[in-house]
Simulated scan of single mutants.
Amino acid sequence: MTFSLVARCAETGMFGLAISSSSPAVAARCAFARAGVGAVASQNVTDPTLGPLTLDLMQAGMTAPEAIAEMQQRSKFTEYRQVLAVDSQGRTAIHSGPNSLGIWTQAQAENVASGGNLLANDTVPQAIVDEFLRTSGHIGDRLIAAMRAGLAAGGEAGPVHSAGMMIVDSVAWPVADLRCDWADDCPIQNIATAWDIYKPQLDAYIQRALDPSAAPSYGVPGDD
């Protein structure tokens, strides 16, 4: 019911992920990222505990492949789960259990991994990976381009209704966490529109948290 990617920007060290599904609020259950550590998507009959577990293992020093292998050993019902990870060196790993739903497949390269289930066809994850690698610029732009490529390649077997994009940088919180929890039109386009609005303000929101006295004006009525 889902297709996604996890990724690292080799130039900035930012991590990000994007995800879409026919199910509601997919990003609330499936999207996990930690600054300086990595990004993880936990999907397909979702167990939300697997994202933080895999991040903890990578933060403790494991590579993405080692963390995914250890996650499999520690967790129950992994035959139903699909988990994607990228670590601080751009190494990627994917676990896709044999009970993943419908047409399921995966693709990965340095700094990016994609997987999906209940797909329209088995080309979707590779199209996502290829587009991420082909696109330049901010990791957010690359994530959006990759998800659009996955949708153009067929996406899910049925219509998608929710989507999300998360980005972490050098601070302890996500610098972008954009969600469309339900839409009858394209949720990926809704996330793209939100990103176009949010991207120019991203640095200002970080500055306001770190030092409000040096932050730019808020641009609201009554603001001096």
Rank of each mutant, 00 (worst) to 15 (best):
I94N: 05
R91C: 09
A93E: 06
S75G: 01
N99A: 14
T63Y: 08
S22K: 12
V26C: 14
P24Q: 10
E11G: 00
L119G: 10
T54G: 09
L101D: 12
E66Q: 15
I19R: 00
A67E: 04
A113R: 03
L57Y: 10
G36E: 05
R74P: 00
A18I: 15
A39L: 10
I128K: 03
I68T: 03
R134K: 10
M58S: 00
C30A: 10
G38C: 08
G115Q: 12
P125N: 09
W104G: 08
T92C: 14
V112E: 02
A107W: 07
A25M: 10
T49V: 11
A25Q: 06
G97V: 13
P65T: 06
N99T: 02
G116P: 15
A120H: 10
I103A: 07
E70T: 07
T135K: 03
A28H: 04
L53C: 04
S75D: 07
T105G: 11
D56V: 04
M14D: 12
P24V: 12
N111K: 03
F32I: 01
R34Q: 15
Q89P: 08
F32P: 03
S21G: 13
P125S: 09
I94H: 05
T63M: 04
S23N: 07
A107Y: 08
V40T: 06
G36N: 08
Q43S: 05
A93L: 05
T92K: 09
A18V: 14
H95V: 01
A60Y: 00
A93K: 09
A85P: 13
G116R: 05
Q108H: 04
D56H: 04
F77M: 03
E66T: 02
I103T: 14
L133D: 06
I128Q: 04
T63S: 15
D122I: 13
W104Y: 14
A35E: 09
T49S: 12
G51L: 07
V26M: 02
D56K: 01
A85I: 05
D47E: 12
A69I: 01
